[in-house]
Structure formats: structure tokens, C-alpha cells
Write a protein that binds this DNA or RNA. Structure first.
Lengths: 340, 340
DNA sequence: CTGAAAGCGCTAACAC
DNA sequence: GTGTTAGCGCTTTCAG
């Protein structure tokens, strides 16, 4: 007859109430710190609750109160090091406000995005943070319609339907171009990432504009998967075609690392023969040799900002429609200034 | 008067029922594909549901059915590349069975583990996958008591309280020792990782046993943080003390990479002067030079296995108490066989 | 200060 | 085939 683990049963308000000799209502009030009971009664109630190991049933509460205190987070791929930190940032804010997070991984598929959204709505989430990568604008807009509070990350839509937290990739692109030109490079290629990516499009436009402003243009540009393998393949083919290229701006750090491998295979020295610059500033960028220069965003901050914005919205406060974060140039070995 | 987005309202079974001119029950039966209505009625009901964009309220259903179809996943740190893949594996199975996952990040803190568990129980989760890293055995056991279905990952407890999915680290250690001795090394050191780690203890025991079986013993052994920095510091001090050492078995790939840096600083050539072997087979192991030989586990498989086990348990099936996965030796550059 | 009544949205069990 | 009754655990409203 051990003291522990004999409570297979789940106790309810009713149980606590009868044990304390009061009504459910009184227990409810006390346990939610809404007063409404004498000191003595409160004591008895709390003790009864403790003895029974009472745990309020969040579902029942939600059903009645019409607030689930659950927030959905949709990411394309949690294995991509970009997203765990966003999640952590979002979680840190959510937790402090008593919210619980459902994480939905969407494996880079637009269909799954729609499916997962339905599920979250059925689950009565109070809001959604949506890192939508694959869904087309029109479909996204339609999906957003039946939705209460949504914050989009890394993407925008009709501001009436959802606010957003984005990164100024065009600025990042300009910083990249500035940096490469400042260290004397002119023959710049673009490993552009997937053509369906919102961010990719912005980076391309940003690079083109920045180069134009200096009377330059990209030597070449190819799309690729946002992976190491994708970067390697793309860079290999580009470098084979244009041996004049002295700098590559890559979609992200993974593709930059792929490009690094491609350069090695061609016996090109990075940064002497070829400079590389990536985006995202993932940990890996500092762990390869040479280290990769990158345009970093504080991903944890993205998550925090998105969740703060969302909670304000849920709260019914008037909020800004969009937040734009600025990337910072992290100079590293792959673009070391060559001695002029 | 656009057709879209005018449905701020949430419709209920009642709404669908009255629109279709039947009772709630009939709607419920039809929408849950439990028959009980004529073809014609079914058609009317489905149409009404579609017109109203009816979405069943999962909370209400859970309250009634006493099954939330939600599963909690507790990880120490989702930013650690070890865990996202476990999550993905678990999700792939859960999704196929209609479960939704709450992810709780516990930032490597035992207190947070307990807190998060409470929250999940209040949320009425049907089960929990718990990658518990920090909580002490006694506390874990106590925490497990009020719990229905839990699968522990990378750790065990009282099998009455929770089943588990673990990795046979002792086997991994043996494979490491075998490999190093086969390529002719005898002076083996052990970079042992954190002393609070379940896996670290198993690896140490495994190495010692395997070496004993060959009439050998580790030259030295030091604990360290499970990070690159930790590995570097530990390896530097060990190599300074024993210049006879020709092979290091490291807690994980990160510490192995740290050791690699330490070796470089001492102008030792890897693998010629010193062989290195890590655990986990993270992506990084293939991205450094030389590439790191490692004992790999299929993390995605861990997640899948854990979720399968959990769902069976929830289902009331008799299940095995523990599943043990076997690491595989991934031979790479850091232990290249020297010409004999 | 405390409690009774009513109902959140859904579904099992039993009628008709 | 279809509807009625009852109730999951909680809280809002309003009386005592």
C-alpha cells in the first residue's frame, strides 16, 4: 500500500468540492485566485486539492471559456536549423503568458500546410505563427480567411488577414554586394536557392539592384535546392561555365557550404580564388574551414517578435501590421579581405 | 458582399443540423462516417456542413470522449540537432494516426521538466514522449507516477512506469574499440562527456569492458561539456599529459571536433598521429576536415519507434518494455587505416 | 461569502 | 433511420 502512484483516477472539481465540504463554484473561484471565500474555506479547499492531486482539466475550461490557450506553430521543416530557434523564441514568450504550443512540421509541402491549418483550427488554437514557405499567395490568402489571429513569418499576405514578421533580405543582399565589391571583386555569381521561396526572390532583386547601382550585373544565376547538395551542384555547374567568377552570393549558408565543396573539387582556394557569402548565419557557418561570411538574422528574436505580436492581437490590442528585422553582416574567412 | 471571409462565426453541430433539417445526433453520425442515415439525408448533411464551413470542435469532442488525440513531446533543447529528427520521426507516425503533437522545450533544466509535465497532464494529453536528460532518477520516477502512457527516449526508469527507446551505447563503444585496435592502435584515451549523462556512463563502461577483453585499458579519461569547446579543452589537457596516446574515443562528434582542433594546435596529424572517433554521426561530422569517424544512430527511427510504442500502449496493447537501437560505425577520415 | 442553474459542443445509450 | 436524454468538467450569471 504505497503512498505513491495509487491515484490512477482523475479528480474533478466536484471531488475537491465535496472533500472540502463546499460547492464546485467556490473551489473554482479559490483555485483561480478570484477570492470569494473566507480564509478558512480557502485553506480547506487548497488542502483538499493538494491531497487529491487535483489537476484542472484544460479542455473543459477551454470549452467553457472559448479560449484554448494553445497556439499553433507551423514550420516547413524543424530539421532545418533555421526553425528551432524561432520556435524557442516563440516558446519563451508564450510560456511566460501561459500558452502551450503545438508544433506542426509541414515537410515542405503546400498540401500539408493546408491540412495542418485545418487541424489547428479544429483544435481551437487561439492563434497561429505560420512560417509558410510553399503555399502560393492566392492559396495562402484563401487559407487565411477563416482564421482569427495569424502572424506570418518570413512572408507577407493581405495585412487585413495576417500581420507578419519578415527579414529585410533586400538589405542583406545589398550588404553582401557592398562587401564583395569593397574587397575588390567584380565577377559575382548568384546561387539563388529555390524559385518558390519568397526570400529567394527578394535576395535576387536586392542583389540585382545593388549591383546595378554600381554599374555591375551578376555574371550568372542559378536556382537550387536550399541544401548543401543543392549548393554544390549549382556552384559546380556555374564555376565550370564561368571561370572568371571571383565571388558567389549564396541563398543560405548550407548552399554556401555546398559551393565551398564545389570549389575544393575544382581546386579553387576560398577565399583567395573565390569568395563565398551565405545567409542565415547558422552555427555551421563557423564550424567549416574556412568559416563562412554570412548575413545573420537573430532567429530567436524573430520567434519572440512574432509571438509578442500574436499575443497582442489575441488580446484585441491594436498592433502594427508588420515587423521587419535587419540582417547583419558577419564577416568571416570565406571573404577575407585580400591584400591589395 | 464577398463570398469569402464573411464567416467570422464558428458553426456548431446544431447549426448544421438545423440547416439540414435533422438532429445533431444524425449529423454527428454522418460526419463521423458511422452511417445511420439514408443516402439522401447524408447528402443534405454533408452539403450543409460544407456550406457553413463547419469544423468540429476538437475540445468538445475530447471532453466527451476522454481522449484528446494530443501527445506531448518533451525535449531538452530543440536547437540541438539531435532532437528535431526525433520529433520528425515521431510526428510522421502520429500524424498517420490522427494525433497532434505539443512540443515542449525544456532548456536543459530539471525544474522545467517537471513544470512542463504538469502542463501536459492538465492539457489531457493521451501520452508523452519524454527525452529526459537532466532529471534525477528518483525525481523522474516520482514524476512518472501520475502518468498514463509515457515512452522515455535515451533513458530508462522503472519499466512499470514507462517504457523506453534507447541506444546501445555500450555496443557503440565496443565497435569503437574494435575499430581502433584493428587499425593497430593501443594507447587509447577517453574524452568522456558530462558525468550527468546517462549515455556517457554507458559509453565509459562499454569502452572499459571492450578494452579489458583485449587485455588493454584506457590510458586516461576525462569528463567534459558535450560541446566543441569542451572537447578541445579536455583533449588538450589529456594530450599534454600523455604523448603516447594514438587514439581518442570521444563522447560525441562535437567533442571529437574539439579534439581535432586540440590536435591541430599541438601539430599532431589526424589520423596519422592521432585517430579520433565520435558518436551520433551528426551532419557536421562529414563537413570538417578530416571527416570524423562516428557511431551513428538513426534519430528519425528513434522518433518513429518511440511513437509507435506509445500509440500501442495508448491503445491498450501489450507491448515490449524497451526497444534498443544499435549504432553503426561510420568509417571516415579521422581513423583511416594506416598502411601496416 | 457561497451556491444553484444553465450551458460550452459533442456523443453514448437508448428510445421511437 | 432518426431523435431524445443525459452528461463530460468547467465557469458565467444571478440569487441567496
Amino acid at each position: 500500500m504505497s503512498e505513491m502512484a495509487q491515484d490512477e483516477t482523475l479528480f474533478t472539481l466536484e471531488d475537491v468540492a465535496s472533500r472540502a465540504g463546499v460547492s464546485r463554484m467556490t473551489v473554482s473561484r479559490v483555485l483561480n485566485n478570484r477570492g470569494g471565500a473566507s480564509e478558512e474555506t480557502q485553506r480547506r479547499i487548497r488542502q483538499a486539492a493538494r491531497e487529491l492531486n487535483y489537476r484542472p482539466n484544460a479542455m473543459a475550461r477551454s470549452l467553457k471559456s472559448r479560449r484554448s490557450s494553445i497556439i499553433g506553430v507551423i514550420v516547413p521543416d524543424i530539421s532545418n536549423p533555421f526553425f528551432p530557434e524561432i520556435f524557442r523564441g516563440a516558446e519563451s514568450v508564450a510560456q511566460a503568458s501561459g500558452y502551450t504550443l503545438i508544433l506542426s512540421n509541414v515537410v515542405e509541402s503546400a498540401d500539408r500546410e493546408a491540412e495542418v491549418l485545418e487541424k489547428l483550427l479544429a483544435q481551437q488554437v487561439d492563434g497561429i505563427i505560420w512560417c509558410s514557405a510553399r503555399m502560393e499567395d492566392a492559396a495562402l490568402k484563401k487559407a487565411l480567411a477563416p482564421t482569427k489571429s495569424v502572424v506570418l513569418v518570413n512572408r507577407e499576405s493581405d495585412p487585413e488577414l495576417a500581420s507578419s514578421v519578415t527579414v529585410d533580405y533586400a538589405l542583406g543582399a545589398r550588404l553582401a554586394v557592398d562587401h564583395l565589391t569593397e574587397i575588390g571583386l567584380r565577377q559575382i555569381g548568384l546561387i539563388a536557392g529555390p524559385d518558390w521561396s519568397f526570400g529567394a526572390v527578394e535576395r535576387i532583386r536586392g542583389v540585382q539592384k545593388a549591383m546595378e547601382a554600381r554599374g555591375l550585373a551578376p555574371v550568372d544565376m542559378v536556382n537550387c535546392d536550399p541544401t548543401i547538395q543543392g549548393g554544390e551542384t549549382a556552384a559546380a555547374s556555374m564555376l565550370a561555365k564561368h571561370d572568371s567568377i571571383d565571388g558567389l552570393i549564396c541563398y543560405n549558408d548550407l548552399t554556401a557550404i555546398g559551393a565551398l565543396q564545389a570549389a575544393r573539387n575544382l581546386e579553387l582556394d576560398v577565399p583567395k580564388d573565390l569568395a563565398l557569402i551565405g545567409f542565415d548565419d547558422i552555427d555551421l557557418a563557423q564550424l567549416v574551414t574556412p568559416t563562412i561570411t554570412s548575413l545573420g538574422v537573430e532567429r530567436y528574436e524573430i520567434g519572440r517578435a512574432a509571438m509578442k505580436l500574436l499575443l497582442k492581437q489575441i488580446d484585441g490590442q491594436e498592433t502594427e501590421q508588420k515587423i521587419v528585422l535587419h540582417p547583419k553582416l558577419m564577416m568571416r574567412g570565406s571573404t577575407l579581405k585580400t591584400v591589395v
